[in-house]
């Protein structure tokens, strides 16, 4: 095995790991009880999956063609910055628009904080 083949294999391994992590996170999205736990599955592990895939693509192009893609690096940075922000904003909007928690959840600390401020 030459050097470029090893690099291509490492990139493909990253991409395969990203695909498996993506499937695991979508099972969280379909199985968890309410929107807050679902956003936990959808934002964190899905971001991990996409970052692994884009890093694998970067390594693959670097190894096979000697091509350092600045666009791909920008994409990695952008996804890494924006995916947690989007998840936080949509969960905040869900809580403010009074989406119910699941029945098995036991405590809601934010409720007391918000309603104490209003009084």
């Amino acid at each position: 095995m030459s050097g470029s083949e090893v690099g291509e294999f490492v990139g493909a391994l990253f991409i395969l790991t990203g695909g498996i992590a993506s499937v695991i996170s979508v099972f969280g999205l379909i199985r968890l009880p309410d929107v807050y736990t679902r956003s936990h599955a959808a934002t964190k592990s899905s971001t991990l999956a996409v970052l692994l895939t884009l890093s694998g693509t970067f390594i693959y192009f670097w190894a096979s063609e000697g091509f350092l893609s600045v666009r791909l690096l920008l994409g990695i940075v952008f996804v890494f910055l924006t995916a947690p922000v989007a998840g936080h904003l949509i969960v905040r909007a869900a809580y403010r628009s009074k989406v119910k928690l699941a029945d098995i959840s036991t405590e809601d600390e934010l409720y007391e904080v918000l309603h104490k401020k209003n009084e």
């Binding site: 996170s25 979508v26 999205l29 929107v35 679902r38 956003s39 959808a42 934002t43 899905s46 995916a83 989007a86 998840g87 949509i90 969960v91 909007a93 869900a94 628009s97 989406v99």
Partner: peptide, 11 residues
């Protein structure tokens, strides 16, 4: 709810 659908669309 609506936020469920938005989270799935983002994903």
């Amino acid at each position: 709810s609506m936020p469920d659908r938005v989270i799935a669309l983002d994903m």
